[in-house]
Design a protein around this nucleic acid. Structure first.
Lengths: 226, 226
DNA sequence: ATCCTTATATATATAAAGTATATTTTTTTT
DNA sequence: AAAAAAAATATACTTTATATATATAAGGAT
C-alpha cells in the first residue's frame, strides 16, 4: 500500500480552546483543498527543520491569531498510516487554553469558533484529537486551576464555577464549589464587585500569574505530600 | 544551519522499566556507531511507513526482547532540532512496564539492565526521556495500581510496597500502605503463603488482569465521582 | 415604599480518606 | 527457651469531600 521510498511528513496541529458565549469553543479552519475540502480542521502546519515542536505549535497559533497569555501543552502524537488519505502524515497535537479577550483572529482564511459540544464535520482524525484535548483539560483541572486560563482577568466565583462545569461537563454544587475554590492557591480576593447586573453584585477575584510551564506539564498538586 | 531540503526522520524510542534486584531498572543498548559511540541509549528505531506509532514501539520492543503482558503508553514526542547532532530526528517516546519474569533479552547486541538511580552515560536526550518516564509512572501510580505490571504474578504486600517505594522514591508507612493497598480494586487475597523465607510467612496476593489500555492511558479513578 | 425575584453569601453536620502511632503473632535461628 | 525478624492488626486524629438551609443585597414590579 505504501511505497517505502515515500517519506513521512510531520505536522503540528493545535486545538485552541476558549470560553465564549457561555460555551467551550474551539477554533477551526475550513479546508479549501482536497482532501476533506469544505470540512473543518484544527489549525496546523508542517514542522520546519530548524524549529522545535513547541515553537512550531506557537508559530501555527500566531499565524492564525494575535494572542498572548496562552497555556500550551503537547497533547499526543497521532500517527496512524491511514489518518491522511494521500500521504503519511504524523501529527504532533497540542492544545491551548486562551482567554477569549486575549485572542484575535488575524488570518484571512475561513476561520471561526465552534462549540465543542456541537462540532461541524471535521477533517482527518480531528474529532478524536479534540475529544482527547477535552479529556486532558479535565485531567489538568483535577490537579490544578488551569481553568483560570479561560477566565477574564477579573471574574466572579460564579463565572469560575461555570468554567469548571463547562470543562467537567457536569453541574457542581455552588456552596461546596465555593468552599473549595476559596482554598485555591493563587486566588486573590479583590475589593471590587460586579456592577450593572440586575441582581446582588458579586465579588471579583483574580489569579496570581502562576508560572505554568508552557512546555511539558509539570504541575504541583496542592499540598503534595503523602 | 539546516538545509531545508533535508527531511525529518521519525523514530520511536521505548523506555522499558522493570524491577530487578530490588531496584527500578531500564533496558539500555550500547551504541556501536557514531554519534555517541559507546554511550548507552534506550532501544529505538525508525517508524515504518505502513505501521502506526504504537505498532512501531511494540516492534522495537520485540526486536530486543521476548515479552508479554506489557503496559505500553506513549510518553512524549521530543523534537528539538539539536537533539541529534547530524540529522533532524524527531522521536516519539514510549514507556513500558514489564515484569522481569516476563521479559527475556533476545537481541545479540550489547543490551542490559541499568538501575535508573545509577545511569551510565547516555546518548542524545535519553536521560531526559528516562527521567520523564519516571515522572509519568509516578503520576500513573497515583491514580491506578500500574505497579502491578512490575510485580510477579503472586506477590506479598511487602513486595507491593517496595515497588511503590521504588517508583515514588520515598519510604511509605507499612501500616497505612497496607490499609490502602487492601482497598485497591482488583487485588485478590490468596490462600497461599510464602515459604522458605527465614521469617514469618507472608500471605500472597494477585491482581485480576484488568484491561489497562495499551494505547492512550485512559484510567478510571477509584470511585470517580465529585 | 413594600414586596418579589434572583443571585450572592455564609455555617454546620456528616462521611470518607489520609496520617500517625504501638503492640501482638508467627516463624527461624541460636 | 529465648532472641530476632518480619507479618499482621487497631485506633485516634486530621483533613478533605459531601450534603443540606438560611440570610443578604440589589433591581424590578406593584
Amino acid at each position: 500500500m505504501f511505497n517505502e521510498t515515500k517519506t513521512h511528513e510531520i505536522t503540528v496541529d493545535v486545538v485552541i480552546l476558549t470560553i465564549k458565549n457561555n460555551a467551550l469553543q474551539v477554533l477551526l479552519v475550513k479546508r479549501t483543498n482536497e482532501p476533506f475540502k469544505d470540512k473543518w480542521a484544527i489549525p496546523g502546519g508542517y514542522v520546519r527543520l530548524s524549529e522545535n515542536l513547541d515553537d512550531a505549535a506557537l508559530r501555527v497559533l500566531k499565524e492564525k491569531t494575535a494572542v498572548d497569555n496562552i497555556y500550551l501543552e503537547q497533547l499526543y502524537t497521532f500517527g496512524d498510516p491511514l489518518r491522511h488519505p494521500n500521504a503519511r502524515v504524523i501529527t504532533c497535537a497540542y492544545f491551548a487554553l486562551v482567554r477569549s479577550e486575549d485572542i484575535k483572529i488575524v488570518s484571512s482564511s475561513d476561520l471561526g469558533w465552534h462549540k465543542v459540544m456541537d462540532l461541524p464535520p471535521l477533517a482527518f482524525d480531528h474529532k478524536e484529537i479534540i475529544q482527547y484535548s477535552l479529556k486532558r483539560t479535565r485531567e489538568r483541572l483535577e490537579i490544578c486551576p488551569v481553568a483560570y486560563q479561560l477566565l477574564p482577568e477579573k471574574f466572579t466565583l460564579t463565572e469560575m464555577q461555570k468554567a469548571y462545569e463547562l470543562i467537567m461537563q457536569k453541574k457542581l454544587d455552588k456552596r461546596n464549589f465555593r468552599k473549595k475554590a476559596l482554598s485555591t492557591d493563587g486566588l486573590l480576593e479583590l475589593e471590587e464587585y460586579t456592577k450593572s447586573s440586575s441582581k446582588r453584585p458579586a465579588r471579583l477575584y483574580t489569579f496570581e500569574r502562576i508560572e505554568l510551564n508552557s512546555k511539558r506539564a509539570h504541575f504541583i498538586k496542592k499540598g503534595d505530600k503523602k
